[in-house]
Nucleic acid binder design. Sequence first.
DNA 1: ACAATGGGTTCGTCTTCAGGT
DNA 2: CACCTGAAGACGAACCCATTG
Lengths: 355, 355
Amino acid sequence: MKTVKKASAAPAPRSQESRGPVTMHDVAALAGVSRATVSKYFNDREGLKADTLARIERACRELDYVPDPHAVSLVRGRSRIVGVILPVISEPFFAEALRAIEEKARALGMEVIIQCSYNDPAAEAAALMTMRSMKVAGVVLTAVASRNNLDLLLRLEQEMRIVYLDSYVHEDCNYVMNDNRQSMAMLTRYLLGRGHTPAYLGAPPVAHPSPEERRAGYLEAMAEAGMAPHFVPAGAQPSWDFEAFGFRHVLDWLAGGAWKRAGVTALACGTDRLAIGAMSACRRFGLEPGKDLAIVGHDDLPISAYLHPPLTTFRQDVAAIGVAAMECLQAQLDGAGAAPYRKRFTGGLVPRDSA
Amino acid sequence: MKTVKKASAAPAPRSQESRGPVTMHDVAALAGVSRATVSKYFNDREGLKADTLARIERACRELDYVPDPHAVSLVRGRSRIVGVILPVISEPFFAEALRAIEEKARALGMEVIIQCSYNDPAAEAAALMTMRSMKVAGVVLTAVASRNNLDLLLRLEQEMRIVYLDSYVHEDCNYVMNDNRQSMAMLTRYLLGRGHTPAYLGAPPVAHPSPEERRAGYLEAMAEAGMAPHFVPAGAQPSWDFEAFGFRHVLDWLAGGAWKRAGVTALACGTDRLAIGAMSACRRFGLEPGKDLAIVGHDDLPISAYLHPPLTTFRQDVAAIGVAAMECLQAQLDGAGAAPYRKRFTGGLVPRDSA
DNA sequence: ACAATGGGTTCGTCTTCAGGT
DNA sequence: CACCTGAAGACGAACCCATTG
C-alpha cells in the first residue's frame, strides 16, 4: 500500500489554504502541468511553450512559491551559497569589501555566509571545513597572516573554488587585491616631490602580504630618490587596534630623537588608522601634524577628509575588489577552470592638508 | 529488484578511498553499527553505550564526516542558519554588531547569512522572503526606517523568529537595543553640568527609532534643566555619509548666527560621525572645537579617542547587543514562545577633551 | 529492560526515459 | 517534430517501529 499514509499520490490542489510549505506539486497542480514541467521551468526553460511558461509563472506568484534551496542543494550537490572568511568584519576595509561582495552576490542570485577567523589558523581551518560541508559555490578568503593552513588550502582548492581577497598563499591561486606596492610608492614619491624626507610606519602583522607590499613600495620610492629609508620601530604583536599601535610607537619614536638627527620631516603610514594614531602622538609630543611633521595614510576612510588636518591618503577601490572576487567565482563556476584569476587594482592619491 | 542499480544495500566499506562525499552509511560501516545508530549519535545521544559512542566518534574523525546540512535541513524543515538583515554593513555600529552576532552564532553551532537592505523596503522584503525560503532558525533584523513592511513582518513573525536589532516595528516584538533616550540625556546633562547651553544635531533619517530616542533624551534633559532646546536644522534626506551631513548642516547653522544670539556654547551630536563633521565645520568657520564650542558625540568609535580634540562620547555596548540578539533566537528556539524578548542596554559616558 | 538493528518512509527537488498528443 | 506527461530513482539524513541479542 502506497497511498495509505499520504493521500497526495496524484497532483491535487491543496485542500487547506496555505497549509505547510508549498511544493512544486502544488504549483504543477495549479498550473495544470506536470511536476517535471515545473522543474524544467526553473532549470532549462528551452523547449517550453510561452503559454505554459506564463501559466507556471502565474501559479508561482499566486502561491508565492520558491524552490526549496535545501532540496535543490541536496540533489545537486552544490548550493548557491558563497562563503566569506575574513579576519574580522569590523575593520572598515573588510566591512566595505563584504558589503560589495554581498551586493554582487545578490545580483547573481547567491547567498553569503560569513565567518571570522580573527587571524587564528585553527578558526580559519574550521571555517573552511564548514564551507566545504555546506557545499558552497565558492569561498572568498582573506587568509590569516601566518599562512599555516597552506596544505589544507591546497587540498581544498581541488574540490572548491577559492578566491583570495587582499591576500594569497601560493603561486597559481586566484586573488584580488590593491596594488599596494604601487600605491605606497606613489604616496612616498608625493612626499619626496614636496621636499620631504619621509619615514615609514607599517601595520601590525595581522595581514599578509599587504603590509609587506606597502613597505616595499616605500623602499622602492626611497631607493629611486637615492635616499636612505627610515622606519618607526614597531612591535611584532598582532593587534587590530591600529590607532593605539600607531600612537604608542610613534610617540616612542619621536621621543627617541633619531628622526630629528636624520632630518626626517614626514611620516608615511600603512593605513589611515595608523596615521590617526600618529597624528595624536605628534600632538602629544608637541608637534603640529601637517606642519611640523607631514603625515600620510592609506585607504581613505570616510572620516579622513574631516580630520584636523584633513589626511592626505590613498583611496583603494574596495568595492571593485569585492565585486571582482565574486566575478572570479562566477567565471570559474561556468566554464574555465584553467588560468588562475588574478586582479590588481589601483586607486588614486587624495592630497589633503596633512602633507 | 532493488539492488540492481546500486550495490550498497548492505553497509559495506567504500571500495575507493575518498570517492564522493562521505555519508552516514560509510561511518556506520566503519564503526560497525547501523545507520540508525549513527543518526542517534548526532541527535539523541541518550541510550547509546559509551563504547559505541567512541567507535562512532572515531569513525567520524577518520573519515572526517560531517552530516550534510542540506539533507538535515530538508528533512527537519529548519536549518541551522540565522539570517541577518542590516541597512548596510560598513557602518561601524552594524559591522561590530554583525561581528558579535557571528561569533555568538558560531558558538551555538549556527551559520550566519547576511543581506543588506540599504534602507529600501523592497530590498528588505526580498531579503525576508529569502530567509523564509531558507527556513532559517531565526532572523536578526534592523528594520528600515520607513517601516513600510509592517504587514509582511507581522505575517512572517507567525512562522519564524525575528529579533529586531536597534529597531522595532510594533509592540510585542522582540528587540535588543541601546537605551538611547537615557544615553543622550546623560550626555546632555553632562554638558549642562559643566555650565553649557547645548544645541542638538540629529542623524539623517536612515534609522528608526534610535535617532528619535536620542533626540527625546536631549529634550528630556533640557526640560529638566528648565532650558529651551536648540536644534541644528538638518535636511530630511536619507544619507549614510554622516560626516558630510554634519559638516554641511553645522556650517550653515553657525553661519546663521542664531546660536550665538541664543547663547549656545555646546553641540550634542547623534553619533560620533556627525560630531566629526561638526568639528570640521567649526574649524572652517573659525572656531576651535572643544574651546569655542564644546562637542559631544555618541558611540565611541575606535578613532574617537585619537581625534583632535579627543571626542567626549557615549560608548554603547554593541557586542552585548549582538550577543543578546542571538540569545533571543536561541531562547525562543528551545521552548518559550510566550513573552517577547526585549533588552535595553546601557553603556557609559566617556569624558574627553572635546567638552 | 536495554542497546542496537534493519527496513521503510519522508522531506522537495532533479533527472531520466519511455511514451503520448 | 515539438511539447509535454507519468513514473521512478536518486540525494543524505531523520524518524518510527517491530525485532533481536
